[in-house]
């Protein structure tokens, strides 16, 4: 403790962090509580404790098919996005070339384009080339949106690598591919696993959005998201529990 520190200010700052966490986590915890509540539309006071909604979902074949669809898409997307991302990250780490900025922009920009617009563009484009509606089209769309995340994660890891490591491997007789396999990939392995995990999570989340929204009515966001997230048509999924205020649209 020096005279530079002020206990009151530091206590207030900690309280602020706590307040932010409460603000962020209240809705997340709230959704847990409501899912265990017997009422159809959550409001105060809460009804009694119930696992009814979980039972309904458990017994719903649509939910299960949707779930399997999600997992398959998620796994494919994770592998594809991570492979693409690794290539992009290594390119950025290793090479300098004219137009590299354009390359990087192309590789990293997709998450900055709103989902609605991406959906609109892809649905329009893929339906022109007769690729829409299939699981493959969902994987394609998710691959575009997820590969920048994979690339960023792997690129961060590569930037921690001693640049001489690669040169040392060449010096010891490893050609470019051998070096890649025995030096770069092992070094980046933790990041590669992180990328697989995170891209799968991103893909899952996008899926969930459609799953909920498409339960409301067949609006475009549903179509778009439904397309992006695979054509799941849930019956009495939790989406049916959205309060009436949300149905006004």
């Amino acid at each position: 403790m020096t005279g530079n520190r002020n206990i009151v200010i530091e206590a207030l700052l900690r309280l602020h962090v706590l307040a932010c966490l409460i603000f962020i986590f209240a809705p997340i915890l709230g959704s847990f509580v409501f899912s265990l509540n017997s009422d159809r539309f959550p409001s105060l006071p809460l009804g009694h404790f119930s696992l009814e909604w979980y039972r309904l979902i458990w017994e719903d074949p649509f939910v299960w098919s949707g779930f399997f669809n999600t997992v398959i898409v998620g796994l494919c997307v994770a592998v594809i996005a991570t492979l693409l991302g690794f290539g992009g990250a290594y390119t950025d780490y290793r090479y300098k070339f004219v137009g590299k900025n354009v390359y990087l922009a192309l590789a990293l920009l997709p998450p900055t384009i709103p989902v609605v617009i991406m959906g609109l563009a892809m649905l329009a484009f893929l339906s022109r080339i007769n690729l829409s509606g299939s699981t493959i089209s969902v994987i394609i769309a998710h691959g575009v949106m997820c590969s920048p995340f994979a690339m960023a994660i792997i690129r961060l890891r590569l930037s921690q690598m001693d640049p001489d490591l690669e040169a040392a491997s060449w010096n010891l007789g490893g050609n470019e591919w051998a070096t890649l396999r025995h030096v770069i990939v092992p070094f980046a392995r933790p990041a590669i696993f992180a990328a697989l995990f995170i891209t799968m999570a991103v893909s899952f989340d996008e899926f969930a959005v459609a799953w909920f929204v498409s339960g409301l009515n067949e609006t475009l966001p549903v179509k778009i998201l439904g397309f992006l997230q695979g054509q799941v048509s849930p019956g009495s999924t939790p989406s049916a529990r959205l309060p009436s205020s949300a149905r006004s649209r």
Partner: peptide, 8 residues
């Protein structure tokens, strides 16, 4: 390695 991402 650069090409797959670029093409995609």
């Amino acid at each position: 390695l650069s090409l797959p991402l670029l093409i995609w």
